[in-house]
Amino acid sequence: MNKEEILKRSRNESFDEREKQIDDESYEYGIIGVLGVSVLIMIWNIIHKYPYSDMTTIILGFITSSAVFKYRRYKTKKLLMASVLGTSATLCSLIVYFVFGV
C-alpha cells in the first residue's frame, strides 16, 4: 500500500483522531470535577456529622470500574491488583454504608 492509498483510506474513515482526543480530555476533566465535588460533599458531611460513606462508595466504585475496564483491555498485573483491591474496598464501603449507616 502506497502513501496515497493510506491517505485516501484515512480521509474516508469517519474516525477523527482530534475528536477522540477532545472526547478523552473532556472525560478526564469531567471525572476530576465529579471527584472534586464528591470530596467537597464528603468533607461537608463529616464536618456536620452526617453519613459520608455514600460518597466514598461512589468514588471507590468509579475507580474500581475504571481499573476493571482497563484490566480487561491490557491484562497487566498492576491493573489486576488495582481491580481486586478496588473491588474489595468498594464492597467494604458498601457494607459500612448499608450496615452501619456511617
Rank of each mutant, 00 (worst) to 15 (best):
M1R: 02
L7E: 15
E13S: 14
S14E: 13
F15N: 07
D16H: 15
D16Y: 05
Q21R: 15
Q21T: 15
I22Y: 08
D23N: 15
D24E: 11
Y27K: 12
E28M: 14
E28V: 15
Y29M: 04
Y29I: 10
G30F: 00
G30R: 11
I32S: 06
G33F: 04
V34S: 07
V37N: 09
V39C: 06
L40V: 13
L40S: 06
I41N: 04
M42D: 01
I43F: 14
I43C: 07
I43P: 02
W44Y: 14
W44A: 02
N45T: 04
I46E: 03
K49L: 13
Y50D: 09
Y50I: 07
Y52P: 00
Y52W: 12
S53K: 05
D54N: 14
M55K: 03
T56E: 01
I59V: 14
I59C: 09
G61Y: 01
G61F: 06
F62K: 02
S66D: 13
F69E: 10
K70Y: 05
R73Y: 06
R73A: 10
Y74D: 08
Y74T: 01
L79K: 07
L80K: 14
M81N: 01
M81I: 15
A82H: 13
A82L: 08
V84I: 12
A89Y: 08
T90M: 08
L91R: 08
C92G: 09
L94R: 03
I95S: 09
I95H: 11
V96F: 03
Y97A: 03
F98A: 00
F100T: 06
G101I: 05
